[in-house]
């Protein structure tokens, strides 16, 4: 039972991180139907920025709480800046071209960012300081759950609630929903579509950055390649839940997290990713539009 609980919570942690990244994918997809392959790289850049800020502040002799807050804020700011710039350079000029062109552009961006960080920083794994404070009351349960896991799950929860509020009740949220439904129509009723798209990229990037900082301080090391794997997994999660649907992305991420956690815990750890992808194929055979995706009837 304890083992089960440990795997369950481990899966929940994993799923939370996937959800933070998958939301960026699914929101961008919902609005401009683009698989933003470089989204994982934004997450990696967020983690790197946090590492750099934290190390510099640490050497300057700041306290842990200040470091945590400043590193988190700067990581979010920089990820947003990168996401915003990337959209303006690589996707905006392609708004009206064929479906595959932005995808290739995204793959190009992804390769570019990876090598940019590789060249400007290092190809080695860097130790990441554990920014998150230890919770003492969890000490007796340390074999089931670590305090960083609690932080990850709670932060994800808060971010989800904030995102839901933003999308449901604010003006920009309404504009985003309108654009996702029908871009031309939204334009006709006066929605500034370019601004909506930029905002979507910024929101997605900030969530990815939060995910990046959390997971990096949970695992304790990063390199330039972490974004790629995480990005593919999160994309899988988004598709699993039905791409374009926000609750779907969260559900898909949790399902994927648990699948991986239980499969590695009970069967074999070598085939972790095989289980993840195999499960995806299985789900899509029976529900071709994902778990929560709507099967739209194609009209002629």
């Amino acid at each position: 039972m304890e083992y089960f609980l440990e795997l369950f919570l481990g899966g929940l942690t994993r799923g939370s991180i996937y959800a933070l990244i998958a939301l960026g994918y699914t929101m961008v997809y919902g609005i401009i139907e683009l698989i933003n392959f470089a989204h994982g790289e934004i997450y990696m850049i967020g983690a790197f920025t946090a590492l750099i800020v934290a190390s510099v502040l640490n050497i300057m002799g700041f306290g842990p709480i200040t470091i945590l807050i400043l590193a988190m804020v700067l990581a979010v700011v920089y990820s947003c800046a990168y996401g915003f710039t990337m959209e303006k350079i690589a996707y905006k000029p392609l708004r009206h071209s064929t479906r595959l062109a932005p995808l290739i552009s995204a793959i190009g961006m992804s390769i570019f960012f990876q090598n940019y960080v590789l060249l400007a920083q290092t190809s080695d794994f860097l130790p990441f300081p554990s920014l998150l404070p230890e919770l003492e009351f969890l000490e007796p349960y340390a074999f089931i759950i670590r305090s960083s896991e609690v932080f990850i799950i709670l932060t994800t929860l808060v971010v989800m609630v904030l995102l839901t509020l933003l999308i449901k009740f604010t003006r920009i949220g309404k504009a985003m929903r309108a654009t996702a439904q029908d871009r031309t129509m939204a334009m006709l009723v006066g929605v500034d579509v370019n601004r909506v798209i930029s905002t979507t990229f910024i929101i997605g990037s900030s969530m990815a950055a939060i995910g990046g900082v959390l997971i990096a301080s949970h695992i304790g090391q990063i390199n330039f390649y972490i974004g790629f794997i995480a990005g593919i997994k999160a994309f899988t999660a988004a598709v699993l839940g039905g791409i374009g649907s926000i609750p779907g992305a969260v559900l898909g991420s949790l399902v994927l997290g648990w699948t991986e956690s239980f499969a590695t815990g009970y069967i074999s750890s070598d085939y972790e990713d095989v289980f993840a992808f195999g499960f995806l194929v299985l789900i899509l055979i029976f529900r071709p539009a994902g778990l929560l995706g709507k099967t739209t009837t194609q009209k002629v």
Binding site: Y29, F235, I243, F277, G278, A289
Partner: peptide
């Protein structure tokens, strides 16, 4: 066979997954 019913981007991710599965099986 399994991807016959899938639309564009779902197809993309399943084929990507298939590629990764083959590689991982060969690796492990």
């Amino acid at each position: 066979f399994p991807v016959l019913r899938l639309r564009g981007d779902y197809l993309a991710i399943v084929t990507l997954g298939f590629g990764e599965i083959i590689r991982l099986v060969l690796e492990n």
